[in-house]
């Protein structure tokens, strides 16, 4: 399991990935790569397999076939070192999933202390730093339930950042938020992209995807149906993507 990657090697690569839930074929030969510093948006209808594809990258789903390499880890192999993989990959969920019994600071310092053996004082400094990055310094000692949905999601992003991942996965992180709160979360993600973070995001915010993504992967029935730069959203070549962006999803 090599750790040192040459800068040209993709951070994430999926090759012919297969995944079924029972008789339902969710991923049917999915392939794509994500280069260092690239922002990739996975879009498609509900049930198209985009969330499953994202979850396979962090091995929350085991694949039935194909090859997944993430930061040098062979994720498709049963002997993959999951803890090493997950130190390299940060994931943010739709439902935030902050730990309700811990303060925001404790939420953030937990993994650096427990996994990386970081000293408590150092971890607290780190917590302040990542919270500043998402504009929530004043919420250090608050409990998750005292925060709005948008603030909770930003705190969850900060928690993930504290592990200094090489790539971040966003699984419909704004789907539970109203437009105003969505905007504050998207601003944080935009800043991350500007800082050069490698990101894979499943999103329904077409306007956002268009603005931030270096590349779009449009999934349809478990396959990568169309892929290309953000401009494919305005000039799609397949009828399915045309229909998908034409159904009112494309907010400016």
């Amino acid at each position: 399991m090599q750790q040192n990657l040459s800068s040209t090697e993709p951070i994430v690569s999926l090759h012919n990935v297969q995944k079924s839930f029972g008789p339902l074929r969710v991923l049917d030969g999915v392939s794509f790569t994500v280069a260092r510093g690239e922002v990739l948006a996975l879009i498609g209808r509900s049930g198209s397999g985009k969330s499953t594809a994202l979850r396979c990258i962090d091995r929350f789903e085991k694949v039935d076939g194909g090859e997944i390499v993430v930061c040098g880890h062979r994720v498709d192999r049963p002997d993959v070192d999951l803890r090493a993989l997950r130190q390299d990959v940060g994931i943010v969920f739709q439902s935030y999933n902050l730990f309700p019994h811990l303060t925001i600071e404790q939420n953030i310092t937990l993994a650096p202390c427990a996994v990386k053996g970081m000293a408590a004082s150092q971890a607290k400094d780190l917590a302040r730093k990542v919270l500043a990055q998402v504009g929530l310094e004043e919420k250090l000692h608050a409990y998750p339930e005292q925060l709005s949905g948008g603030q909770q999601q930003r705190a969850a992003i900060a928690r993930s950042l504290a592990m200094q991942p090489k790539v971040m996965l966003f699984d419909e992180v704004t789907s539970a938020l109203d437009p105003e709160l969505t905007a504050e979360v998207l601003k944080v993600i935009e800043q991350l992209a500007a800082d050069g973070m490698t990101m894979v995001m499943v999103t329904h915010e077409m306007g956002f995807a268009k603005g931030i993504a270096d590349r779009i992967v449009f999934m349809h029935r478990g396959k990568v149906h169309e892929t290309g730069p953000a401009s494919i959203l305005t000039s799609p070549t397949t009828p399915e993507l045309t229909q998908f962006v034409g159904t009112g999803n494309l907010k400016s």
Partner: peptide
């Protein structure tokens, strides 16, 4: 999702359970 969030942060099974 609490398990998954803890897993995503690379906590071991014992750490997920205890913390």
């Amino acid at each position: 999702p609490q398990w998954e969030a803890a897993e995503g942060l690379a906590l071991s099974r014992t750490q997920r359970m205890m913390k």
